[in-house]
Amino acid sequence: MIEVRLFATLRQGREKVVMLESQGFSTARDIIEHLDIPAGEVSILLINGFHKTPDTEVKDGDIVALFPPVGGG
């Protein structure tokens, strides 16, 4: 399984934590698309606590954290 943790507004209409079967997901981008999150709505992506890009491969047991952009002032 891959554990996906969603932060702030990415939880709207979704769960805080989503557990996914690892089969069928080769990169973090696949997970983002599966969760129907537009690419422009992910700012920070962590895999097992390390800052990564969406093209990073994912594997069984990974914890993926997704943060939306924060840009106002």
């Binding site: 507004t9 422009g40 709505e41 992910v42 700012s43 920070i44 939306p68 924060v70 106002g72």
Partner: peptide, 19 residues
């Protein structure tokens, strides 16, 4: 890094305690 190409923020609200 914080704002990769193509990223945009859609929530334009700001509550008083955030700033």
């Amino acid at each position: 890094v914080l704002y990769p190409e193509g990223v945009s923020f859609r929530d334009r609200s700001v509550l008083s305690f955030a700033p």
